[in-house]
Simulated scan of single mutants.
Amino acid sequence: MATVIAGPGDTVLKVYPASLDRETRTALEREQAALSALDHPSILPVRKISELADGRVALRMQRCERTLAGPLPLRDVLVLGETVAKALAAAHRAGVVHGSVTPGNVLFLRTGEPVVADFGTALRRRFPHDPMHELEFIAPETVREETMDERTDRYGLGALLYLALTGEPPHRTVAGEEPGTRIHRVLTGPVAPITRPDVPDDLVALVDGLLAKDPGKRPAHPEELFAARRPGEPILVLEPSRREQPPPPKKSKRGYVILAGICVLFAALWFGFAAGNTRPAPVPTPVGIELAPPVDRGDHVELSWTSNAELDYAVILAEEGSPDPQVIMAHRSTQRRVDVRPGLRYCFQIQGRNPQGTYESRFEPIRGATCKR
Rank of each mutant, 00 (worst) to 15 (best):
M1P: 12
A2K: 04
I5L: 11
G7W: 02
G9C: 12
D10M: 15
V12S: 04
L13V: 06
K14C: 02
K14A: 05
V15T: 02
V15R: 01
Y16T: 05
Y16L: 11
Y16Q: 08
A18I: 14
L20V: 12
L20R: 09
R25H: 01
E31W: 00
A34H: 01
S36M: 04
D39E: 15
D39Q: 13
S42L: 07
I43E: 01
L44Q: 15
I49S: 00
G55E: 01
G55W: 07
R56D: 03
L59I: 07
L59R: 01
L59P: 00
R60F: 03
R63H: 08
E65Y: 01
L68G: 04
G81R: 02
E82I: 14
V84S: 07
L88C: 01
R93D: 09
A94M: 00
V101Q: 00
T102K: 02
N105D: 02
N105E: 03
N105M: 04
L107P: 00
T111R: 08
G112L: 05
A117F: 00
D118K: 09
D118M: 06
F119D: 00
F119L: 00
A122L: 02
R124W: 00
F127L: 08
H129K: 10
H129V: 15
D130Q: 05
L135R: 14
L135E: 05
E136M: 11
A139L: 13
P140Y: 12
R144T: 12
R151W: 10
T152W: 01
D153H: 03
R154Y: 10
Y155M: 07
L165D: 00
G167H: 06
P170K: 07
H171M: 08
R172L: 09
G176F: 09
P179K: 02
P179D: 02
R182D: 06
H184Y: 10
T188I: 11
T188M: 06
G189W: 05
G189T: 15
A192D: 08
P193A: 08
R196Y: 04
P197H: 11
P197T: 13
D198Y: 05
P200R: 13
P200M: 14
P200K: 15
L203M: 09
V204F: 09
V204H: 07
L206Y: 03
V207W: 03
G209A: 05
P215V: 08
P219A: 11
E223N: 04
L225S: 02
A227R: 12
R229N: 06
R229I: 10
I235P: 00
R242C: 01
R243L: 14
R243E: 14
S252Y: 07
S252L: 15
K253C: 14
K253A: 14
R254E: 15
G255N: 13
G261Q: 12
F266D: 14
A268C: 15
A268G: 15
F271R: 05
R279L: 06
V287G: 01
G288C: 05
L291K: 07
A292F: 06
G298T: 14
H300V: 11
E302P: 06
W305H: 11
N308E: 10
S322E: 14
Q326F: 09
V327C: 05
S333N: 13
L344G: 02
F348H: 04
I350Q: 03
G352F: 12
Q356C: 04
G357N: 15
T358K: 09
T358Y: 12
Y359T: 11
R362D: 10
R362C: 11
F363S: 12
G368Q: 10
G368I: 12
A369L: 10
A369C: 12
